[in-house]
Write a protein that binds this DNA or RNA. Structure first.
Length: 545
RNA sequence: GCCCCCGUGGCUCAAUUGGACAGAGCGCCUGGCUUCGAACCAGGAGAUUCUAGGUUCGAGUCCUAGCGGGGGCACCA
């Protein structure tokens, strides 16, 4: 609806001779002002030498000329807003349209893009924690929105299965394994120390052949086994939470195909590298980064940064129009250097990096430091065990990735029963129950009987859904979805309270029957949109609860 | 020290990207089931949007300075 209004206003502005710079803005004002509003006249007044009200009045007559059918009225308000009241007839007709489109409702016509979105991508050396959950839910939901917006989306997970930390992981397991054999190995400061490391070691005790290997070989074998196990657990957990992936991309393949070397060569050719103290450096400071970065260490190994450049070049070679990276808070400082590389290699415009903020775990008013190596942390799996995936997903999705979250576990447990997700699911279950009771509805309902304020409010809410998709696919602010879901549920609950859907007495008059039929169609439309919204968020839509 | 992010009722978060009276949930107070699901609805109390300046028709949002919290400043990933 917003988009349609934008088009109409744009056209009217052209007819009236106003230039449309920076686009037309349509928003939802307070109810008393109207259903939609535009500040176009206020904006235009900056360049045109006319008062905002004059512009608004002029625009208004052109709009009414273009679409007399669409509005009950269009008002000019101080200091120059233009407020739109949508015609009842139009609203009533839209209900039929929603029911017709069913699960396809909300799909919008956009310039179809091929999008790659990478999210979560936790190191495979430990279990997922809350921050990973936040990233995973955000990415998965955003990918759902992209699909709905008509884009071709690839969901990707980058597996850091190469480099020093893998060996460190193997050493950590090996040390625990030796402990179990009664030896007293050195537990180094930098080792991974969580219980899960001991669990892996314990499992390895079952096979005796490991004792025959040399220590170096054993560490490699253990690292591989540990890695596979952690990865399998990660996959299982994400699947349980409904987080989907199309591609699991292994860092090792970049080395196998020599892509890291090639990436470095490319940077050399562009003239943005130099050698210093035996290492190869990238002049990222010339491109906005704080300092230059090492691509190849003095010992001949490539850095993670180098392989990450190779990874992004690989994505570009797969012909995406847009690459989105969803990163954890600890990657803030890393953003500039990758953008610097993107500038040199010509994909700056295509790369969007979104860095989420920290999730702090708070217990008894004290922060609990989460660290894989320290071994103290609360895992995503534990959260699922406490509150279930639906509540967990909703809880994180509600919040903008820009805000720090103080996660209080006791409060989360206590409040999970009061979580707004149940409010929405309850609306869906209520609807399901009504539709079940009403039985099969007949076609040809007289939707022009829908006139009650609560009915019209509900319809208007339903019409916002495509706007939610449109906006979110552009600005990635997924918290809009849970917010919308709550508003929609509220509108339905209110409608339910005010408007009896199924007549109280079975022998009602035909007038009541017609109204009931119309309300049933509206109820069905509400169910469709509510379910659509829940599906985008990856939250279940129960028929009963 | 330098760079980045955040600061909104008691608590957890929104605010359509510069719009109209700052909105929800939780908690607190009051009312509503002999009719379709009360996990609901209606009403109430509770805000100097960290502080001080500035920009303009208009600021929670932009600029400057300060205060508070977090993160980053590796030849780790």
């Amino acid at each position: 609806m917003q988009q349609e209004l934008v088009k109409i206003i744009t056209q009217a502005a052209k007819q009236a001779g106003f230039s449309v710079r920076g686009g037309v803005n349509v928003d939802y004002p307070q109810e008393t002002y109207g259903d939609y509003a535009t500040n176009f006249a206020l904006q235009a007044a900056k360049t045109v030498k006319l008062s905002p009200k004059t512009i608004a009045n002029n625009l208004r007559s052109h709009i009414l000329n273009l679409r007399p059918d669409l509005f009950d009225k269009v008002e000019v308000a101080e200091p120059g807003f233009l407020n739109f009241f949508i015609a009842k007839k139009y609203l009533q007709d839209q209900v039929k349209e929603i029911v017709k489109q069913k699960e396809k409702y909300g799909e919008i016509k956009t310039n179809k893009q091929k999008i790659n979105i990478e999210y979560c991508s936790a190191n495979p050396t430990g279990p997922l924690h809350l921050g990973h959950g936040r990233g995973a839910f955000w990415g998965d939901t955003l990918a759902n929105v992209f699909d709905k917006a008509g884009h071709k989306t690839t969901r990707e997970y980058f597996i850091n299965d190469y480099g020093k930390q893998i060996l460190l992981f193997g050493e950590s397991i090996n040390a625990r394994w030796q402990e179990l054999l009664g030896q007293k190995p050195e537990i180094k400061e930098e080792f991974y120390k969580g219980e899960y490391v001991k669990d892996i070691a314990r499992e390895l005790m079952k096979k005796e052949e490991h004792a025959k290997l040399s220590e170096a070989e054993r560490i490699k074998v253990f690292a591989d086994i540990g890695l596979k196990k952690m990865l399998a657990e990660t996959k299982a957990l994400l699947e349980k939470a409904g987080v989907k992936y199309d591609v699991w991309f292994s860092e090792r393949t970049l080395y196998k195909k020599d892509l890291v070397k090639k990436a470095i060569e490319l940077l050399k050719k562009k003239g943005f590298t130099y050698e210093k103290e035996g290492a190869l450096w990238f002049s990222s400071s010339k491109l906005g980064d704080d300092k230059d970065r090492v691509l190849k260490k003095a010992n001949g190994e490539e850095t993670y940064f180098a392989s990450d450049i190779a990874y992004h070049l690989n994505k570009i070679s797969r012909k995406y129009d847009l690459l989105i990276d969803g990163w954890g808070a600890d990657h803030w400082g890393y953003k500039m250097r990758l953008m610097a590389a993107a500038k040199v290699l010509g994909f700056e415009e295509k790369l969007k990096i979104v860095v989420g903020q920290f999730v702090r775990l708070v217990e008894n008013g004290q922060e609990v430091k989460m660290s894989k190596r320290g071994g103290v942390f609360f895992t995503l799996e534990e959260l699922f065990n406490e509150v279930g995936p639906d509540v967990a997903r909703f809880f994180f999705l509600m919040k903008s990735v820009d805000t720090h979250i103080d996660f209080n576990l006791d409060l989360a447990k206590e409040q999970s029963q009061k979580n707004p997700v149940y409010y929405i699911q309850y609306a869906h279950a209520r609807i399901s129950s009504i539709l079940l009771k009403a039985g099969k509805s007949k076609s040809g309902a007289r939707l022009n009987l829908l006139r009650h304020p609560s009915e019209l409010k509900l319809i208007k809410e339903l019409l916002k859904f495509p706007d939610v998709i449109e906006d979110t696919s552009k600005d990635y602010q997924v918290q809009r979805l849970p917010q919308y879901a709550v508003e929609l549920a509220t509108s339905f609950h209110k409608f339910y309270q005010d408007c009896q859907v199924i007549p109280a007495s079975p022998a009602g008059r035909s007038k009541d029957k017609n109204l009931s039929q119309a309300r049933l169609v509206l109820t069905l439309a509400a169910k469709i949109v509510l379910k659509n919204t829940l599906e985008l968020m990856g939250v279940s839509a129960p028929e009963k609860m």
